[in-house]
Design a protein around this nucleic acid. Structure first.
Lengths: 331, 331
DNA sequence: CTGAAAGCGCTTACAG
DNA sequence: CTGAAAGCGCTTACAG
């Protein structure tokens, strides 16, 4: 592999000059530039990102730490991060924390050693102390979805509460007269917000009762169990807002097994907008998060921070969209 | 951040010695080692992976280039690669080619500039010339699933043909008496092999006719279309072996919409073993590839190659497993 | 068992 | 507009 020296020699200039044309920094005579570029071509020279990193203290590399690759959000999110990063000349490292604080911490160390310029967290474990430690280490980072606090860092997420209201209102509009809610782990802020959104709408309706709230675990099997519990408690529910899509798929499966017609007897609305909701029969109505946008925005913000452009810590809440499908089509 | 110099100074030894204890290379007196480790502790020293990379020409980094993050295989594959890599002290870069040769080529360049120690391809675009070019550039790599040729590189994949035979035999065992096959794009070797496996079993059966072969695109909507075509051509089929799970889900959806009972009227068996097959009602019987194993093996082989241990180019074909589920339960 | 020195391939002030 | 020099933080022979 050719080095910057070879290029300098072949084009008859100094290494510094080659570096300047490489980085388009400082002044350089057009003719000189031309000669250098010619040499680069003929030598098929490619600068070593590693040497650059060491000399400049910038690796043009960012890391995405996520809770779990199996998370259905991950592919689209990763894609957004990767595409935006590439556009700006960054390459991306991935690490999964499995929602274990020590794994996450280990990855932070690894990435620090690799001089990553910034980190995007889409992990549920980032705690307050870790956030503060990151702050004091001056490595830029963005938190997706869930943050220990909105003040200490920059956060990008969906407007979950408003989305939940959309969902419940939609069920009402479709004629549902008794709507249950299967909620996710209340340790997760997202799940909390969606529960609140549900309550916002139904709290003062005559049929409302707290027993319409069924706990779930945000996983498919949790949806199955919750649906059984729901039908036992309230055989007369005719609509259910499920805290996330994975559980909604479980709910559908469970109801169909019990011989309950969807949407005729019970209408289902999920939340997230993952592809799985289109794979079932009937397809499931859902409130879609702008997953790609979340990832793209987080990446853009991170790069701004890296460039020292960004302002202080900020909260960015993106709007969600209701996607009506067969699971709520009561005609 | 502390550097190796700081550690050397604090422990009263030379930089070389610190380097030796860091790398556990060469001899070093136990007492000295202790002093050094103490200094490392108190300074919270972490060696710079970038400097190490530049000096040693090894970055302890590998790249995974895949066709598309949306591919349902990707999460589990990525997880396997990440976990095994981490075990051996490697960090992993991701890049997606979207099955475009130029994107793939661009990523190869990027990763080369970053001194990655090796590459795993799970992309359909790696051509013969690229493989040869990689060979001559001496960067170790492994190809997953699809390779331009088994001779020029190391390949890890499933035994698709045998798996297809398993699937078809299972349908026969469950009492199917006329089995169609929805196949994938014949440009993809995987699809070819599965078609062959189907033919191996049914070719000489009395009811077999080439019109039982229906083309598909390996995507969900392709399954929907293919199922319609299948029922039109052969209203009396009672079993179908679908070339991959994504299409199988589409087939199920399509049949249910037509009011056809699954498995009573038509039994369905897919291929791949993705989670989606468990989300439907009924759940879909499938031939599962050992996805995690494929990724783990590829990573282990790659690291062997990096360490110069590995032998010549080799083909590794892993066994698949039939997972019987409700979609073929004709009781 | 340990240290001094060169070098990995760049970037970055500093002069000119 | 250009070049010489120092330095980024390590590793790697080479002596001893």
């Amino acid at each position: 592999m050719a080095t910057i020296r070879d290029v300098a020699q072949l084009s008859g200039v100094s290494v510094s000059t080659v570096s300047r044309v490489l980085n388009k920094s400082g002044y350089v005579n057009q003719e000189t530039e031309h000669k250098v570029n010619l040499a680069i071509q003929t030598l098929q020279y490619e600068p070593s990102a590693v040497a650059r990193g060491l000399a400049s203290k910038r690796s043009r590399t960012i890391a995405l730490i996520l809770s779990n690759m199996m998370n259905p959000f991950f592919p689209e999110l990763a894609r957004a991060v990767e595409e935006v990063a590439r556009t700006f000349g960054y390459t991306v490292f991935f690490g999964s924390s499995d929602d274990q604080a020590d794994k996450e911490q280990a990855y932070i160390e690894i990435f620090r050693q690799r001089y990553v310029d910034g980190i995007i967290f889409s992990s549920h474990t980032l705690g307050m102390e870790e956030a503060l430690r990151l702050n004091s280490s001056h490595i830029p980072y963005i938190v997706l979805d869930r943050a220990p606090s909105d003040e200490v860092c920059s956060v990008v997420r969906s407007n979950n509460r408003a989305g939940a209201r959309l969902a419940v209102q939609h069920l009402l509009d479709r004629g549902c007269s008794k709507i249950a809610h299967i909620y996710g782990p209340q340790g997760i802020r997202t799940a909390q917000e969606r529960l609140r959104g549900y309550e916002d709408i139904v709290k003062h309706l005559p049929w409302y009762s707290p027993s319409l709230l069924i706990p779930g675990n945000f996983l498919l099997d949790g949806g199955i169990t919750a649906a059984e519990q729901m039908m036992e408690r309230h055989p007369d529910v005719d609509g259910v807002f499920v805290g996330n899509d994975l559980m909604a798929v479980g709910v559908l499966k469970s109801l169909l097994r019990m011989g309950i017609q969807v949407p005729e007897q019970v209408a289902i609305c999920g939340f997230d907008g993952i592809q799985l909701t289109e794979a079932t029969e009937p397809e499931i109505t859902t409130v879609a998060q702008p997953i790609y946008e979340l990832g793209a925005l987080a990446t853009r913000l991170l790069i701004q921070k890296i460039n020292g452009e960004a302002v202080a810590n900020s909260l960015h809440e993106l709007d969600v969209t209701l996607i009506p499908r067969a699971s709520t089509r009561k005609d």
